[in-house]
Amino acid sequence: MIRARVRLSFLVLIGVMSAAAVGAQSVAGRGAAPSLVRPASPAKAPNADGFLQRWLILEPIRVAGQLTDSAVQTVVKTEYFPNQFTTTVPRDGETVTVADAQLAWHAVDTTGYNVNLYHFAYSLNKPTSNVLFWVATIVNAPREISGVRLAIGSNAASVWWVNGREVISIYNDRQTVIDDGVSKRLTLKQGSNVIRAAIVNAGGATDFCARFLDEDGQPVKAITISLMDR
């Protein structure tokens, strides 16, 4: 079950240096994740190229690390913790129990176009190989925006959902390439849109990047990213 260890307002939350934080302190003697910082504002705009730089990341779940289509689909469709497939976005510091291990969600801002999951897990002294990462964020649209596409890259395989609908799946051992997997045209509704993804890594580096593209392939930037429903 979800243990709502921390249920604070965002402004209170960012003032708390919880043990789950990865961007500002080291864990067990390891340095802080060099590319990740704690969010310092309620909402964040995409960067100049449209990349979404604010995410909630669940500490990695150990899996077999198989990357074929069927193996990845089996892993991402396995319910490791309750409410895994809802569109409710967890809170920073919230924990879940997976096979007797307590795993925490961490709010991060990445300083790059991509989110370095290796930095994330390494800084927490967590495994980086043969692991499954769940990530989520909320994209706030000032109005309904139709005809856009979610465009992602991931190392390695990943599956993506927008507002609960699976829109991208890419498989096999691969590096993060900008706009590798791209959804079909979709509509961002006015207000909150929940983006979730499951990234499976077999070994070595692991990261992802994501942005929205318009009909002409240009980045969508008239949106903001936050980690709580408004």
Binding site: R149, A151, G153, I170, V177, D179, D180, G181, V182, S183, K184, R185, L213, E215, G217
Partner: peptide
Amino acid sequence: AIGSSTPTLS
């Protein structure tokens, strides 16, 4: 080729 893994019509 809208993406490395993704074709579409445009």
